[in-house]
Simulated assay, not measured.
Amino acid sequence: MNPLCVLAMIVVSFPASVFANHQYPEATQFQQQRNAMVDTLSQKYRGLGLAVEDMRVLNAMRKVPRHRFMPKDQHKNAYRDSPVKIGYGQTISQPYIVALMSQLAEVESGMSVLEIGTGSGYQAAILFELTSQVYTMEIISPLAKRTQETFQTLGLLKIKHQHGDGYYGWPGELKFDRIMVTAAAAHIPPPLLKQLKPNGRMVIPVGPVWGNQQLLLIEKDLHGKSTTRSILPVRFVPLTGRVFK
């Protein structure tokens, strides 16, 4: 589930080495295209304070094979800085938005991260390069099944994946250091805020369905008090579920 906007971004030049949390089959396929994509991304939005400069995030983008998370007929579009349709009314996010959201989350190794809206599985794979504790939920059953198969094919067996309504968060009493929502909500879901640990961060697009939304960064302090900051306007597919019908 991902943004339909084509926002730009910035970059500096980075080495090709990447954080090695997972080894992909055919790892070097399309490597030149991935490098070019990241180099292009890291040269945009510098003057607006929206540059993606986190080396770990950019190295993850260099490494994860985006084309393997989309239909074969879309492989030719895999490394353009634009969203791509993946079926069921959903998209794989624009690379800049994936990188920006990952940077805003400030994921550190060992943190637990919950993603709402697995979609293609690409964002979860990027997060998995940053920490091994990745949980992701998808409400659309056939898409959840297809993504689970993608994870199995690519050996991403440690990513915890579940079919369910992400508005209510991960079932059980787990709490997370970071939460990332990759579909637009009409408001900040209270159950997700409750699952965010003290000193945690949530990145979420909020706004009207099929309209302009705002990408928000929510930070919870050590006492559980939350503050919200608007980052930039975006267009995401809507968060679905019983609450939004």
Rank of each mutant, 00 (worst) to 15 (best):
L192E: 01
A124V: 13
S141R: 15
L192Y: 00
Q152E: 01
V134Y: 04
L217V: 09
M111E: 02
L192P: 09
T153S: 04
Y122M: 09
F151H: 11
K175N: 11
Q103D: 12
R229N: 09
P233E: 13
L127Q: 09
A184Q: 02
G117D: 05
G110W: 00
P189W: 08
L216N: 03
E106H: 14
Q148C: 11
L100D: 07
Q152G: 05
S112Q: 04
H163I: 08
H163R: 00
L143Y: 12
T118I: 04
N212A: 14
G121F: 14
T136E: 09
R201N: 09
W170C: 01
P208L: 14
M111T: 05
T227I: 14
G166H: 00
K225N: 06
P208T: 14
S226Y: 03
Y122V: 12
G169T: 04
P189D: 07
I139D: 04
V107A: 10
P205A: 02
G169E: 06
S230V: 09
M202C: 14
M101H: 04
V181T: 07
V203S: 10
R229L: 07
S226R: 08
E219I: 03
M202A: 10
Y168S: 01
T147S: 04
Q195T: 02
T227N: 13
I188C: 03
Q214T: 11
S226T: 07
G224I: 11
P208A: 15
F128H: 05
V134L: 10
Q103K: 14
Y122K: 10
E129A: 07
Q152M: 02
V209P: 04
G207W: 00
V206H: 01
K160C: 08
